[in-house]
Computed example of a mutant assay.
Amino acid sequence: MKKAFLILTTLLISFSTMSCNKNYMYPDYDGTEKETPGPGTGEPELPVETTLTTSIRDLVLIYGGGSDRAQTWNKDAFYPYVAAANNTAYDWMFDGFLFLELNDGKGHAFTTGHAPDPALKVHWQEMIDKYFAENLSIGALDQCVDGVIQKGTTLSRKRRISIGIPEPIKTATAWGEVNGKMLDFSKDEDRITACKWFVDEVSKKFQERKYNHLELDGFYWIAEEVENTGTMIAAIGDYVQKKTLTFVWIPWWKSPGYNNYKPYKFTDVYLQPNYFFYDVPYSRLQDACDEAKKFKINLEIEFSEEVLGGRGQKLYDYLEVFEKNDVYNTMKLAYYQSENTILRLYQSTNTADQELYKLLKDIVTKRQKVENPPYLKN
């Protein structure tokens, strides 16, 4: 690992200034591509350029809508995600925060396969309420940003927020009422109605909170495959985009639709290499870079608490291959960090953990300082 760290340090000196653990999430997934066809057949068409895409450079995933999460997202917990000390000043870290959840911790799933029963309207509402709770989650993030500003650091761009839309699971035949009608998720029109309700409810709550340093960037489709929702996703994408909001997707490795995502009306796609959690060859990372370049999509960096205590070689592999492929200068990035791995690296007294945190911090802060990077269209 030391050798890899030295190589990466050298690479970063020349750096121009410019998802997930599937064993838990999808027990039948083994990290390899599937043959299930996406929309259409044959060689996929290259995506047509869209006029609406996210302006987020570095999007970190924050899980916090379930009752069984050990991490409480208060102001202090967000600090290593918001800023990094640089002598007597501060550098800004992540400019985008994706709040999402897979289940409520009480047996109700927000996406297929994560709990015995589908989440109903009451559970969707409880998740929304947790995101907008006083002094926690999104509100705590705003307070954290304000605290850094109060120390004399100027924020040139508000931090942008994306919220995960729960998957409307088909077995929820009595999900809850919207406008006096009980919704039945065996019907696509009712699934669409529920998702529109969720988008409206989150948008209203966000506007009511009047955050000083945050903007609602858009929504994220939590289901990482289209098998269960492919017939109705486009209607949600249309609805979100009409509000001038983004509609983001982070599919697993070669999940059908990753290379032909426009029919689903996604504005931005980040491909998961799925190298960290599976016994797949090192060449997977190069393959991921090649696929992202070919289909004009972005990439996700994946890691978990397994990197702690000097076990970060697989994460170093991501960072090294991405550097060799000029990813940091040419693509938007998402960061899957399990529940709170970046916070734990920051707090650790272990030398290897400190080195790994510093490397991640240097990559993100350098990307944040670049003026008008070419991968941003807005």
Rank of each mutant, 00 (worst) to 15 (best):
T153S: 15
E167C: 01
H114K: 15
S283M: 07
N179I: 05
R311E: 14
V364G: 08
I138F: 07
Q143R: 11
E227M: 06
R344L: 13
E302H: 09
T36E: 15
T349V: 08
A334D: 01
A223I: 05
A70G: 11
E306T: 12
K242P: 02
A4L: 14
D68K: 10
W221K: 01
L285N: 04
I236F: 01
L98S: 04
F110T: 04
Y239A: 07
N260A: 12
N179S: 12
E101Q: 09
K361V: 11
A83V: 05
M1C: 11
T112M: 06
W92M: 05
T17L: 14
A4M: 14
F295E: 03
E291G: 04
V148W: 05
V307T: 08
M18N: 13
N325Y: 13
Y328V: 03
F94T: 02
S186C: 06
C195I: 05
A84C: 03
T53W: 04
T341I: 03
D117M: 13
S137K: 14
S162Y: 08
E33D: 13
L356Y: 04
G152N: 07
L359K: 13
K158E: 15
T330V: 08
L356I: 09
F206N: 01
D95W: 01
G65F: 02
P373Y: 03
W124S: 05
T229K: 03
E49G: 00
